[in-house]
Measured scan of single mutants.
Amino acid sequence: KTVEVNGVKYDFDNPEQAREMAERIAKSLGLQVRLEGDTFKIE
Score class of each variant (00 low, 15 high):
residue 21 M to H: 08
residue 42 I to G: 01
residue 24 R to K: 12
residue 3 V to M: 03
residue 15 P to G: 09
residue 27 K to M: 12
residue 30 G to L: 04
residue 36 E to Y: 11
residue 30 G to K: 06
residue 17 Q to E: 14
residue 24 R to I: 09
residue 17 Q to Y: 08
residue 39 T to M: 08
residue 23 E to S: 08
residue 14 N to Y: 08
residue 4 E to M: 13
residue 1 K to F: 15
residue 38 D to Q: 08
residue 23 E to T: 10
residue 32 Q to H: 12
residue 39 T to S: 06
residue 33 V to Y: 14
residue 38 D to V: 05
residue 27 K to H: 10
residue 27 K to A: 13
residue 14 N to Q: 07
residue 24 R to P: 00
residue 7 G to W: 03
residue 19 R to V: 04
residue 21 M to K: 03
residue 25 I to H: 02
residue 25 I to D: 00
residue 33 V to G: 02
residue 3 V to S: 01
residue 19 R to Y: 09
residue 22 A to S: 03
residue 40 F to Y: 15
residue 30 G to I: 01
residue 43 E to S: 12
residue 39 T to K: 05
residue 33 V to A: 06
residue 36 E to T: 06
residue 37 G to P: 02
residue 42 I to H: 02
residue 23 E to N: 11
residue 16 E to H: 09
residue 37 G to D: 07
residue 20 E to R: 13
residue 34 R to E: 04
residue 39 T to Y: 05
residue 39 T to R: 04
residue 8 V to G: 03
residue 8 V to C: 15
residue 23 E to F: 14
residue 2 T to W: 13
residue 18 A to M: 03
residue 31 L to F: 09
residue 39 T to W: 03
residue 16 E to Q: 12
residue 35 L to V: 13
residue 17 Q to R: 10
residue 10 Y to H: 06
residue 28 S to L: 14
residue 1 K to E: 03
residue 19 R to H: 06
residue 34 R to Y: 10
residue 18 A to D: 00
residue 22 A to W: 06
residue 43 E to C: 15
residue 29 L to T: 04
residue 8 V to T: 09
residue 8 V to H: 09
residue 4 E to H: 07
residue 13 D to N: 10
residue 35 L to A: 06
residue 10 Y to V: 06
residue 6 N to I: 05
residue 17 Q to K: 12
residue 11 D to K: 15
residue 13 D to E: 12
residue 43 E to N: 09
residue 26 A to Q: 01
residue 38 D to G: 12
residue 5 V to L: 11
residue 41 K to M: 09
residue 2 T to F: 14
residue 14 N to W: 07
residue 1 K to L: 11
residue 38 D to M: 07
residue 22 A to M: 04
residue 42 I to K: 01
residue 26 A to R: 02
residue 37 G to L: 05
residue 31 L to W: 13
residue 15 P to E: 13
residue 15 P to F: 14
residue 3 V to K: 02
residue 12 F to C: 14
residue 19 R to P: 00
residue 36 E to Q: 07
residue 2 T to P: 03
residue 29 L to A: 04
residue 26 A to M: 03
residue 24 R to C: 15
residue 2 T to V: 12
residue 14 N to A: 07
residue 34 R to I: 11
residue 31 L to S: 06
residue 1 K to M: 14
residue 4 E to I: 14
residue 33 V to C: 15
residue 5 V to G: 01
residue 43 E to D: 11
residue 12 F to Q: 01
residue 32 Q to V: 14
residue 23 E to Q: 11
residue 9 K to D: 03
residue 38 D to A: 07
residue 6 N to V: 04
residue 37 G to Q: 05
residue 24 R to V: 07
residue 42 I to W: 01
residue 5 V to P: 00
residue 40 F to P: 01
residue 18 A to P: 00
residue 5 V to R: 02
residue 26 A to K: 01
residue 32 Q to G: 08
residue 42 I to F: 10
residue 42 I to Y: 02
residue 27 K to N: 10
residue 30 G to H: 06
residue 28 S to E: 14
residue 1 K to I: 12
residue 8 V to Y: 11
residue 6 N to C: 15
